[in-house]
Amino acid sequence: MDSSKIVLNPAGAEQESRVWIERLTAIGSERDAALAELHALLLRAARFEVGRRRAASSQLRGGDHDDLAQQSADDALLAVLGKLGDFRGESRFTTWAYKFALYEAAAKVRKRSWQGREVPLTAEAWPLMADDHQRTAQQSVEITERLAALGEAIERELTPHQREVLVALALNDVPIDVLAERLNTTRGALYKTLHDGRQKLRSVLAARGLGLDEHKEQTPA
């Protein structure tokens, strides 16, 4: 047996999930106890996430990390209770619930890390970075042509909003949650804009005979 595989669904996992739902939809002290247990689980997950991101959030003070974890657990608890009807039992209930805490914690750390910072929405210059990959002369010409075509297409083919989103997310490394907050929209809506812009850029490359899929087929393994 592959030692990297982890047994996640031992007998009783389904029953365990069912009990969670029953307790959380009960009334009185049974529900109160379940809420307290669930909050503790979510707080553990939030602390796990904040801990993973500690290096990326070094400007936060010591107590800030636990404050963020507490806020994330509180918000995740509300989100879990609001979405309880969506739980379909395809995973353990705890795995399903954890993702809400991780999502809240990650988004909060990203936003806190960018607090007070300007969000760059324009490219000051098309990046002319040194190419550190070993290439044949032809490969080097191809990628230069592709990037030149993309630079033109970003200016000419994308809508101003698509351009702004692509530049911020793909070129300037602005976290999507931070951009969503600044533009008063959602992660999903921004990613849709990014995706549509990328599709347009791929079409431009294909129309010029510089398509990425064509390139893969032509390149020997």
Binding site: D132, H133, L166, A170, N172, R187, G188, H195, R198, R202
Partner: peptide
């Protein structure tokens, strides 16, 4: 300002054009 993380052109190309094929939405 351009972030300094784009160490090579392949990475930049991938960021600009995204993955090939259909993909799920964030939701």
């Amino acid at each position: 300002m351009i972030a300094p993380g784009h160490s090579n052109r392949d990475d930049l190309l991938a960021r600009l054009t995204g993955p090939p094929g259909p993909e799920l939405s964030c939701e």
